[in-house]
Design a protein around this nucleic acid. Structure first.
Length: 339
DNA sequence: AACGCGGCCAACCGCCACAGG
DNA sequence: CCCTGTGGCGGTTGGCCGCGT
């Protein structure tokens, strides 16, 4: 048995409000206030309306200083920024826009703003996809030159963050890769990555050559950071990087998160993969797929920017500009290694 | 002119939180 | 602590309207 309805639906009028009803409600509230009880209010005025309906009508339409339509560019920006920050909390967003109601903003978002942003997103992502594709092609060429599996070599040191100690990024719904700075000999760094899907840990360095002592130092630090992680280590050395690889349990407990909200990380990643994803096949051809259905928070969150409201988000995006293509190719390679 | 379709928006629905008894 | 009433909120619906065929 469900909750009792707030009013007798058989005896209340529904549908659009007539001017007479509006006048009655407005003049009564302006004179007496709501009386703190919306449910009782319609009976007092002689309106055959549900109390909730009266409240909604007042708040969304009759209340003084209500603005309808004609959203400005500034209001657009505020709505987008807040949506990125807090999601569909329309009442909170409305509180930042004097004269706007949550219902108005919600309608505006659903009918116009979302589409407007998606159009913008498509352009940006097409440009991004082209960029990523070119980088992948370059990496692939170098991999082939060195007879190594695609994705093992990282030739994008400028992407590696300098300040962030450690963070992790969800790549798919239930997988993540963690990056950690690992300093040794006070000169250079290596980076730990974890692939939960096959529980592999890798440490990658940016030095061109390492002595066996260097490798040993990296292994020790890797073990210090994640004692139960590396049960087996192999090394590959090439002119651009060394890759240490191991298996075992991996704890995220001590890791620092780049940003507070998981959603924001998801949103950041969509900058790279987005609604339009580009799959690079081994023959170099590309497949682009587009989805316009089911637009989620993450779909939109990568599009907007506000220096006031989401400055951390922007900073995070900057920091997250790391080898985006460290994904499935690597995973498949390491999965292959475990067999 | 008639019809279908999609966009827009006011209003409704159902759930949740909270206060008071 | 439980129950009930109410306010508040976000998601959804349905009707109106304009446009294209």
């Amino acid at each position: 048995m469900g909750r009792a309805p707030c009013c007798d639906k058989a005896n209340v009028k529904r549908g659009p409000w007539s001017p007479e009803e509006d006048t009655k409600l407005k003049s009564y509230i302006e004179e007496h206030g709501t009386g703190g009880n919306w449910i009782a209010l319609p009976q007092k005025i002689g309106l055959k309306r549900c109390g909730k309906s009266c409240r909604l009508r007042w708040l969304n339409y009759l209340r003084p200083n209500i603005k309808h339509g004609g959203f400005s560019e500034e209001e657009d920006n505020i709505i987008c920024s807040l949506y990125v920050t807090i999601g569909s909390r329309w009442s909170i967003i409305a509180a930042q826009l004097p004269g706007r109601t949550d219902n108005d903003i919600k309608n505006y978002w659903n009918t116009k703003l979302k589409k407007k942003l998606l159009g913008k997103q498509r352009k940006e992502q097409q440009a991004q996809a082209r960029k990523v594709f070119n980088q992948k092609q370059e990496i692939k060429r170098e991999s082939e030159d060195l007879m190594l599996p695609v994705g093992v070599i990282f030739r994008t040191p400028y992407y590696w963050p300098e300040q962030q100690h450690s963070w992790h990024i969800p790549v798919t719904n239930n997988a993540s890769i963690q990056y950690s700075n690992l300093n040794y000999n006070n000169q250079t760094s290596s980076f730990i990555k974890h692939f939960p899907s096959n529980n592999i840990v890798t440490a990658t360095t940016m030095n061109s050559q390492h002595s066996s002592r260097d490798i040993s130092l990296i292994q020790n630090q890797l073990h210090d950071l994640h004692p139960s992680t590396v049960s087996m280590v192999t090394t590959d050395t090439c002119h651009t990087s060394n890759v240490l690889q191991g298996f075992g349990n991996f704890s995220m407990a001590s890791d620092l998160a780049c940003v507070n909200q998981q959603q924001q990380i998801d949103g950041s990643m969509r900058v790279f993969y987005g609604l339009e994803t580009m799959d690079v096949a081994t023959n170099g051809s590309t497949n682009t797929s587009t989805s316009t259905e089911s637009i989620s928070w993450g779909d939109i969150s990568s599009l907007v920017y506000s220096p006031l409201l989401v400055s951390d988000y922007e900073a995070c995006q900057q920091r997250l500009l790391m080898p985006q293509d460290v994904t499935f190719e690597e995973s498949s390679y390491f999965a292959m290694q475990t067999q």
